[in-house]
Amino acid sequence: MQYRPDAAELLDAVASLLEDDVIAAVPAHLQHQVRVAANLCRILEREATVGPANDAAERGRLADVLGADDDRDLVSLRADLAEMLADPAPIDPALDRSIRDALLATLRADLAIAKPGYGATTGAP
């Protein structure tokens, strides 16, 4: 295990440098890219903190809706679900509902990392 600072703390340090000093110091045509880079550090900082727990929760939800064994990994569960959805065979409406709920729960968790606040409101009218 690495000594402190941990990944999130280091990403915070890099983000602060980019936001507080680098943006103002680079030519105008690079400022947007630096701003994006700083935002990516903030995203990765949150991902380092809550990403593992999010992945575990997503794995649990998908194993649940797919009726899969508990030892299946997330990547293969996601592939299975995508394959099932691509198959035109009918899906029971109750299962369809639980799949959509599971996907929305995962997307809200992803958005809490990638764009905090976005998942709190909806794109619907």
Partner: peptide
């Protein structure tokens, strides 16, 4: 960075369907 924006549009699509 666009890769980390995919969830926004997936979320919008699913909430619209919802």
């Amino acid at each position: 960075a666009s890769g980390r924006r995919v969830a926004e549009l997936a979320y919008d699509a699913l909430t619209l369907i919802d």
